[in-house]
Design a protein around this nucleic acid. Structure first.
Length: 284
DNA sequence: CACCATGTTCCTTG
DNA sequence: CCAAGGAACATGGT
């Protein structure tokens, strides 16, 4: 479930477990996820390196490492794509079916698993350079947001998915933020009013913050994992949906009554992706 | 079998 | 050159 909040929650979980740990061995089962870094270079660079820090930028992880006998830091970029998971597990635990990369850290293994392999674990960090500001960036004011939106004739929902406009908004939270702001997903981005833009930015920040807070309260563990054996927070387990699904006002709720006005939530397709909204609350 | 899925990149079109 | 649209990527769940 990787949009900005899920990546943030995962980063907070991973950091204390990774910090100070050295990579003793590396197994790459799906070379595709390293792209464009060649597997040989990936291994050569990472083997023996130690994790110093982990930051999140948009939906990306930036792992900071340093090689043995070197003062020079370097970065590893991670992205979960649609189905990626990154977690630590005891060395004796069975590996998940779709383990793509396994890093031996001693007692534990860092496991990146990804059924669809849309994610990445790579030395090519260039993707973050193309990202727009973080939602909470003080310099990203409603005025600047409005200026950017004005240039576009795309529907508001589609515009929000552009990571170069604002980093981290994905298909779920785009619908949720527009609902909270009372803006129709079909409204042309350039026609969003100045007050609407202020509401939208506040709504994006609000839904993201609440999702992070919610995710942080979920007990992360491996033992409860069933088939995947991973963190149930990232899986399809009923518990995850209890925590996660019930917080969403419109996403995945087509045909159900709006929590605010009772009108029927609709599903439409925009840019080949589902959008959910309340036709009554989001008329602007 | 049909359809759906949390994302990004690349190619084409206008 | 730029904005926008759509396909591709690979697999699993319902």
């Amino acid at each position: 479930m990787p949009e900005l909040p899920e990546v943030e929650v995962c980063a907070r979980y991973l950091l204390p477990l990774l910090r100070g740990k050295a990579i003793r061995a590396i197994e790459v089962r799906r070379e595709k996820v390293l792209k464009p870094t060649p597997p040989a270079r990936f291994k050569k660079n990472l083997l023996g390196a130690k994790f110093l820090n982990l930051e999140r930028r948009g939906k990306y992880f930036l792992f900071e490492l340093r090689r043995k006998n070197s003062r020079e830091k370097f970065y590893l970029l991670g992205h979960l794509g649609m189905t990626g998971k990154m977690f630590l597990a005891p060395k004796q635990a069975p590996l998940p079916k779709h383990a793509a990369v396994i890093l031996d850290l001693g007692a534990n293994r860092f496991i990146y698993e990804d059924a669809r392999c849309f994610g990445r674990l790579t030395l090519d960090v260039s993707a973050v350079e193309r990202l727009g500001p973080e939602p909470w960036d003080k310099k990203f004011t409603p005025e600047i947001f409005h200026q950017q939106l004005k240039k576009s004739r795309q529907p508001a929902k589609v515009r929000l998915l552009d990571q170069s406009l604002i980093a981290g908004v994905g298909n779920i939270y785009a619908s949720e933020a527009l609902f909270r702001a009372g803006i129709s997903p079909r409204l042309v981005a350039g026609k969003i009013t100045r007050p609407g833009t202020t509401r939208l930015l506040a709504a994006i920040r609000g839904v993201m913050t609440e999702a992070i807070d919610c995710g942080s309260t979920i007990p992360l563990n491996f033992s409860g994992g069933r088939k995947s054996g991973g963190l149930f927070y990232f899986g399809r387990a009923a518990e995850a949906l209890d925590y996660y699904g019930e917080r969403l006002c419109v996403y995945g709720r087509a045909g159900q009554p709006c929590v605010k006005c009772g009108a029927t939530i609709r599903r439409i397709v925009q840019a080949a992706r589902s959008t959910f909204f309340c036709p009554c609350c989001q008329n602007a």
